[in-house]
């Protein structure tokens, strides 16, 4: 049965604290930033490329256990929205740097906060089709390169980082039991970098900075997030995907021991928890020292919770990722350690 064998992650050395942000944003104290986001620190990649972070996360994975044999990996999936180049594919660069064999498949897929769920789904499907045995799933994201330093709506929330998950057909610490997924491109405009692709090429015009109604400054080359729209999308969509994935797994809310959602921000998660009536002790919140690392939040939270020893043998864990696209997905795992 397709399983998660192991998870590791990498965070850049450079840290951006609330105290540093307080000095830049007159009306926002460090305390207010923490109260509103649940975040104290974010790791910022600066010059470090997305591929470098992905390689470091994979190396951390390989170093975490002697049981991991690189040559057993048949496929490399890399989730990113900040690739090193338009082309070639970042996963191809990573294959070479990691010294993975040349008979593997390697591809990038462009998703954000739902990306980890889709990566698990793709890996599981490749295994179930008997094409592969072991899959290396990497998430590596560097939103800092898109964020305008004067846009507090995004800079206070997002952090950079990368994760590596080894999936195996035969053994692991958690089986992948059920998935649900969904897409609504009507929400594309609410979380977007408008310029830089083919729809709008970067130019001196797109680089012009403008002040929005909330005093945030950004250009069309920067990341834009419509926070209220993203929040309502989340409240409308997440309960439905949870209902569907539970039905596919023939489980109820009460059967789930832990809920590990995309760590968007603490306020959003607390509102979702209240709406879904999930007990606090079953609901993982783990973003204080990383921020919203996009496709990396779920594997980071899973690995940290595993290291704390909270997952017991047989525990049912529900994952949900949601955001840019709009795109969302959920999964049910059974812990086996």
């Amino acid at each position: 049965m397709p399983s998660i064998a192991r998870i590791a992650y990498y965070l850049p050395q450079n840290i951006l604290t609330n105290e540093e942000l307080e000095k830049e944003y007159e009306s926002w104290s460090a305390n207010k930033i923490y109260r509103k986001t649940g975040i104290e620190n974010r790791h910022i990649a600066n010059e470090e490329a997305t591929s470098e972070m992905a390689v470091k996360a994979a190396e951390a994975l390989f170093n975490s256990s002697q049981d991991i044999i690189k040559d057993n990996i048949d496929f490399l999936l890399l989730c990113t929205q900040s690739p090193d180049y338009f082309l070639p594919t970042t996963a191809c660069l990573v294959q070479e740097r990691l010294g993975l064999k040349q008979t593997i498949g390697a591809l990038d897929f462009n998703l954000g906060c739902s990306g980890y769920i889709y990566g698990l789904l793709l890996a599981t499907s490749l295994m179930q089709a008997k094409h592969v045995h072991d899959v290396l799933l990497l998430t590596s994201e560097k939103y800092c390169r898109y964020i305008n330093p004067q846009d507090k709506s995004t800079r206070t929330i997002f952090g950079d980082g990368a994760t590596a998950t080894l999936l195996s057909e035969t053994q692991g610490m958690a089986t992948l039991d059920a998935f649900d997924w969904g897409t609504d491109g009507a929400g594309a405009k609410n979380l977007i970098v408008p310029a830089g692709g083919d729809a709008l090429h970067c130019s001196s015009e797109t680089a012009k900075e403008q002040v929005d109604a909330n005093g945030n400054i950004r250009s069309l080359d920067n990341l834009y997030m419509n926070g209220p729209e993203i929040f309502t999308f989340t409240l409308n969509t997440v309960p439905l995907t949870i209902e569907r994935v539970l039905a596919k797994a023939s489980l109820t809310m009460q059967d789930i021991d832990f809920f590990v959602f995309h760590q968007a921000n603490k306020f959003m998660l607390e509102t979702l928890r209240a709406k879904l009536d999930i007990p606090e002790e079953k609901f993982i919140i783990d973003m204080k020292d990383y921020g919203n690392t996009v496709s990396s939040t779920i594997p980071i939270a899973l690995e940290n919770t595993r290291m704390k020893g909270l997952f017991h043998n047989g525990a049912k864990i529900l994952l949900a990722g949601f955001g840019v696209g709009y795109s969302w997905g959920s999964a049910v795992l059974t812990w086996k350690e």
Binding site: K36, F231, T271, K275
Partner: peptide
Amino acid sequence: DSLALISLIGMFSKSFGRN
């Protein structure tokens, strides 16, 4: 501001069960 809007969305959901 936009943060107030986000806080209101949360309040309507938590306190009144409305999206």
